[in-house]
């Protein structure tokens, strides 16, 4: 039996794959297959997003669905996080008499890290799941096949606009999250902690550098790509009717969240080294 035949046997009869080496091999093969699949999908999607023909109606629809309708959830998350962050830093900073730098630390934490990451996580829950469910249902009901027979490439019509909207909308949502998050800190500082409003704003504005905001926006663009890509990939490859669509939705959210944290660390490391 060749290695390929053995791999097929294992895939067909998973119950027989009790040998730990077989289990390990099966998992490794499956992981490699998935990484390769996602890579090819990402390249095809990117080409579809960046080359004509563009479907402007679809693009506009995705801008609204991904950007505009995510504003409330991103705004609410940001304001509570900014407020809690301000309280924590004020209390913690008090241990070494550093309460007064709280505005600067809140601003730095929000713009560089929490703004883009929280907005992306909210988008993963709201948008990635919705994309996977919608495209998965289209796959299950032959709508994607129908689209192909109507001489329209589903990658250009479905995947490209969503990737573009993810990359362009998440940085905009991050600007909103940054502004509202810092405002949450200001609200707590001035209403609860007796900070002067003018001093808080001046400290924040004087301290923040353009790169603090820009690095967060670059992260947001990458996270936006990940969120849209995972939704599209898992939806497009959904199999097995309603159960398959449910599975695709779960996988889209979980893989988006993990990839957001992993790429956040890698990008932060890169930015830190680049700044030296």
């Amino acid at each position: 039996m060749t290695a390929a035949e053995a791999a097929r046997q294992v895939a067909k009869h998973p119950i027989q794959a009790r040998n730990p080496i077989q289990v390990l091999g099966r998992s490794a093969l499956s992981a490699v297959r998935m990484v390769g699949g996602v890579g090819v999908f990402a390249v095809r999607g990117t080409i579809a997003a960046l080359s004509p023909p563009w479907f402007f109606n679809q693009l506009l629809r995705q801008f609204v669905a991904i950007g505009f309708f995510s504003l409330p959830v991103v705004g609410l998350t940001a304001i509570f996080t900014g407020a809690a962050l301000a309280l924590n830093i004020y209390t913690g900073g008090g241990r070494f008499n550093a309460e007064q730098v709280m505005p600067q630390i809140v601003a730095l934490g929000i713009t560089r890290e929490l703004g883009p990451v929280l907005a992306a996580l909210m988008l993963a829950g709201r948008v990635s799941a919705a994309i996977a469910a919608e495209i998965g249902a289209m796959r299950a009901t032959e709508q994607i096949d129908a689209m192909r027979t109507l001489s329209t490439d589903p990658f250009r019509y479905l995947v490209g606009p969503r990737l573009l909207a993810g990359v362009l909308m998440l940085p905009l949502l991050t600007v909103v999250a940054d502004t509202i998050g810092v405002s949450g800190g200001w609200l707590v500082a001035t209403r609860v902690l007796d900070f002067s409003s003018a001093v808080y704003i001046r400290n924040t504005v004087d301290f923040l550098q353009g790169w603090d905001i820009l690095s967060g926006l670059i992260k947001a663009a990458v996270f936006g790509f990940i969120v849209a890509l995972m939704g599209c990939y898992h939806g497009y490859n959904a199999k097995g009717g309603a159960r398959g669509v449910g599975r695709a939705t779960t996988h889209a959210v979980v893989s988006s969240a993990i990839l957001i944290f992993a790429s956040d660390y890698l990008l932060t490391t890169f930015f830190t080294h680049a700044a030296k």
Partner: peptide, 8 residues
């Protein structure tokens, strides 16, 4: 198509 496959 069997289920008409209209775009929802």
């Amino acid at each position: 198509f069997q289920g008409a496959a209209l775009f929802d």
